[in-house]
Design a protein around this nucleic acid. Structure first.
Length: 577
DNA sequence: ACGATGTTTAG
DNA sequence: TAAACATCG
């Protein structure tokens, strides 16, 4: 069973496993959580970088860019850009290094699909880098504990002078990188870690009291102001890496790396529908850019079934609204190809969010970033702001990823522990069509429409009253190809009302009215819930028991109104039944 | 990034 | 009479 993130940081005494027949993983004690928040690992990393004492080395055989599973691209990649500039300056070749770390993937509940997506992207990158005579060396290292020393001995084995990497903001990754920096420093290798994932780096924005933002709206205001004040800083494209001198291929160690293979699998992460995933989510920057172009430039097209055709070209549009332009009105429609579908690419860093914003601004001829015009583009840029926000929250309040609710007052909310209910939710057999369609979409596509995510998550946490942490783990672990710890955690805590959302606990979706809005004709439901494939009337949103029985579709597990009252009761008075 | 319910308004 | 709006949870 996978362990929860950061578990190894807690003393065994302070580990408290909630009494729960369903494993939600380890939950940090309030004291441990407070301690991590008081001095977040990101600050520690930045401090240890300041303390690096190594003098810039002037001889060696390589500058190394260590690519990780969240920055898998060559273009607009800050660490890679800096590494390349430095390599050129130092007259040494640039080497790209990647370590597959199965224990980390297990600890972070990565899905086999996500791991497979990583491998597929590595294959594409290997070829693209080779064209620049840059070797990509991919290895597997089983033990996450010894990974830092493994990385540093690799650096020594290629006689590296410098190490470049983009910062990963998860707690375990930050702690790993602190150790790597210290070890590299001791070994005389100069480490450089840079902010790259977000438009605005974590820690930069703060309230008038100097505290990190914990509410989205004011965060977004500041976020926009910062970007518009200095767009060149925040939206600039990082320089593309220069080619190595071709003589690198003669180097006894680096030369061999051109012919080494990217592993085809990672032990314990067998992806059973590799081929289908490769069709829906092709790897590589070209695929990501094509996805972006489709969103910005084409009008959505729907298949006969009503399911948005994930690979359909769409109609190139000049006058008609593109999908991006229609985003404001269409984004809550689960039955349409209404969203960009870029999340797998953004999560893996195959495309940068900077590039997304640049392309969106260019489309509407705007020079300022805004989120409130009626072009649709503004609403889409807001989604990128949410992405930044949740990583800022994770960086400033790392306990949210250690099993703690952002709002501690909800730490004692009583959760139901019915394993049959959880199993029904996980497999898409809750008897609520929109919820089941959502879950089954994730199980078949590795991806879920954003509105469907909210509806499905809200149903688990408020109707079934099952712990959000279980949903958080399972959604990443089982099916989803686009898992990002910060966004996933933020989304789940939003759904569970334990998060940063200042709206009170009574934000409870009515799954049936949500269904009518997200899927007015039932196309989405019929596509993913074949039992209901012959139901065309409005009853598809909530099939009468007789009809459900006849079609072999399950009856609802709970009555929504009763469940709603139960949730209201429990949140009003955490600890009560 | 809400829902249920009651009240007002447009037609 | 239904859609829009306001209020409260």
């Amino acid at each position: 069973m996978a362990k929860r993130s950061c578990s190894d940081s807690l003393s065994p005494r302070k580990k408290s496993r909630l009494e729960h027949p369903l494993s939600i993983g380890n939950v940090a004690s309030p004291e441990a959580a407070a301690a991590v928040d008081a001095d977040p690992p990101l600050k520690k990393l930045l401090r240890s970088l300041e303390n690096v004492t190594t003098a810039p080395p002037n001889s060696g055989d390589a500058v190394v860019y260590w690519m990780r599973m969240e920055d898998m691209r060559i273009y607009d990649n800050r660490a890679l850009a800096q590494a390349s500039v430095q390599a050129l300056k130092d007259h040494v070749p640039l080497l790209v290094f990647f370590v597959l770390s199965p224990q980390d993937y297990a600890a972070h509940d990565r899905s086999p699909r996500r791991v497979d997506f990583t491998l597929r992207n590595l294959c594409v990158l290997k070829g693209s880098l080779a064209k620049l005579d840059i070797p990509l060396h991919v290895t597997t290292h089983a033990s996450r504990r010894t990974l830092p020393s493994y990385v540093v001995s690799f650096l020594q084995s290629v006689n590296a002078t410098r190490l470049f990497a983009n910062i990963e903001y998860e707690v375990d990754e930050l702690r790993r990188d602190i150790t790597v920096c210290n070890l590299a420093n001791e070994a005389g290798i100069l480490p450089t870690l840079v902010h790259d994932k977000l438009i605005v780096e974590p820690g930069l924005l703060s309230t008038k009291q100097g505290k990190p933002y914990s509410v989205f709206s004011p965060f977004q205001r500041q976020w926009l102001a910062a970007i518009n004040k200095n767009p060149n800083q925040y939206l600039a494209e990082a320089v593309s890496p220069s080619a190595n001198p071709p003589t690198v291929r003669d180097h006894p160690i680096l030369g061999k790396m051109f012919s080494s293979e990217v592993p085809s699998r990672v032990e314990g992460f067998q992806c059973l529908d590799k081929h289908q995933m490769a069709v829906i989510w092709p790897a590589g920057m070209d695929a990501a850019r094509e996805m972006l172009r489709r969103f910005l430039r084409t009008k959505s097209r729907h298949t006969q079934s009503g399911l948005a055709d994930p690979l359909g070209e769409g109609a190139e549009t000049s006058e008609k609204k593109s999908r991006a332009m229609a985003y404001k009105d269409d984004r809550d429609r689960a039955d349409r190809d209404s969203t960009s579908r870029l999340s797998p690419y953004l999560a893996a860093g195959v495309i940068s969010s900077r590039e997304c914003i640049r392309a969106a601004l260019e489309l509407v001829g705007a020079t300022k970033v805004h989120t409130n015009r009626d072009t649709g583009i503004g609403m889409w840029i807001q989604e990128i702001a949410w992405r930044d926000f949740y990583t800022h929250v994770l960086a400033a309040f790392p306990r949210v990823s250690m099993g703690r609710p952002f709002q501690e007052k909800y730490a004692d909310v009583q959760w139901e522990t019915n394993p049959e209910h959880f199993e029904a939710w996980r497999t898409g057999r809750t008897g609520v069509p929109i919820v089941d369609a959502a879950i089954r979409q994730a199980n078949t596509m590795g991806w879920m429409h954003n509105r469907a995510r909210m509806v499905a998550a809200m149903y688990l946490t408020k109707d079934l009253m099952i712990d959000w942490r279980l949903g958080e783990r399972v959604s990443l672990h089982a099916a989803i190809i686009d898992g990002d710890l910060a966004s996933n955690n933020g989304g789940w805590q939003w759904s569970a009302s334990t998060g940063t959302d200042p709206q009170p606990y009574f934000r409870i979706f009515n799954p049936y009215s949500q269904s009518e809005k997200a899927d007015p004709n039932g196309d989405y439901i019929r596509t993913f819930v074949p039992e209901l494939g012959t139901v065309f009337g409005p009853e598809i949103h909530n099939p009468p028991a007789k009809l459900a029985d006849k079609l072999g579709y399950p009856r609802p597990l709970v009555d929504h109104k009763e469940a709603r009252d139960r949730a209201l009761r429990r949140y009003k008075n955490p600890g009560s039944k």
